[in-house]
């Protein structure tokens, strides 16, 4: 992506990639995680995903209709927002929760700012932040993995926060997603398959995800529980929503910096804020807030990392 995204003067070469093509490619890259979520949490996960996506599409069409704009539901961006919002929800939530979340994400997170390309914050994460501030009890009761009846279980990070001990889960279990958590974040394997597809298609670059995950791992390793350099960085990388956030939400074109230098700053900021919230904050998990905060800083980052115009001093 970064090679295609250098902002420069003409002449430009036209490429057939369009916004909607990239959006649908990201949707495709998220399908393995949907399959994994249904395997791990059962049909309620599928129900939540479908409701969230449908609500996002309906909201987008409705708002574009009443504001007399061109209805652009088929460009995939509303579909993607609904899908990502669902991935940020526990599998078993009341049916209206994804509806309210998707409505907020599209209406307040995106259309209020003028629609696709104008929004400051990642709409799906804005929806999640709204839901978690409004109905924390539904947003933090997670379904236990591979249990047919709805047993709730805490996420590994919640256990860590409450007991100060790394919970007894193997790295392989975490990697495959045998843990409580939001429905799209648990299966790291499926997420990495999707991310690899996006890398292969050059729709995302390494700058944000690698710096995000890397600095977070380094930070939790340095400030470990038994003094410096004792932290379990593998556990911290495999649990929580950091893989989902770093590859699929921090890389959102609209809300992340344009230049490579800016993207590295953005990724570092996300990683440090995530680690700080996880280690010393009130919440067990900080990925979504970290990304939202750095979304807010993106205009400033863009301003100070602007590429130099030829012949002018910066």
């Amino acid at each position: 992506m970064s090679n295609n995204l250098i902002v420069s003067s003409s002449c430009h070469i036209h490429k057939e990639d369009s916004v909607s093509k990239i959006m649908w490619a990201v949707v495709i890259s998220l399908i393995p995680s949907a399959v994994a979520a249904v395997i791990i949490f059962g049909l309620p996960a599928l129900k939540t995903i479908l409701i969230a996506v449908a609500a996002a599409l309906v909201t987008e069409a409705f708002i574009q209709k009443i504001t007399k704009k061109k209805i652009s539901v088929s460009d995939g961006s509303a579909f993607l927002t609904g899908l990502l919002l669902a991935y940020n929800l526990p599998a078993q939530v009341p049916f209206w929760l994804p509806i309210v979340g998707s409505f907020f994400a599209i209406a307040i997170g995106k259309q209020v700012f003028g629609g696709l390309g104008q929004n400051i914050f990642n709409p799906a994460l804005a929806g999640r932040a709204f839901l978690i501030a409004s109905w924390p009890k539904y947003m933090t009761s997670f379904t236990a993995p591979l249990s047919c009846d709805a047993i709730t279980s805490a996420t590994p990070l919640t256990l860590l926060k409450e007991t100060k001990i790394i919970p007894d889960i193997t790295y392989l279990g975490l990697f495959l997603g045998k843990r409580g958590g939001c429905l799209g974040e648990v299966c790291i394997l499926a997420l990495l398959i999707g991310a690899a597809f996006l890398f292969f298609k050059k729709y995302i670059s390494w700058h944000i995800p690698v710096t995000f995950i890397g600095i977070n791992g380094l930070f939790v390793y340095i400030f470990g529980p038994n003094g410096f350099f004792t932290g379990d960085w593998v556990f911290h990388t495999l649990s929580g929503g950091i893989i989902l956030g770093a590859f699929f939400m921090a890389t959102d074109y609209v809300t992340s910096p344009l230049t490579r230098k800016g993207q590295i700053i953005f990724g570092l900021g996300c990683g440090v804020i995530t680690a700080v919230i996880r280690l010393w904050g009130g919440y067990p998990e900080g990925v979504s807030y970290a990304i939202l905060m750095m979304n807010g800083a993106t205009p400033i980052i863009d301003r100070y990392t602007k590429s130099r115009v030829y012949g002018k001093f910066a």
Binding site: P94, V100, F130, A133, S134, W135, P136, Y138
Partner: peptide, 9 residues
């Protein structure tokens, strides 16, 4: 109904 506590914040 389940009130949205965000509005009290």
């Amino acid at each position: 109904f389940d009130p949205a506590s965000v509005f009290s914040m």
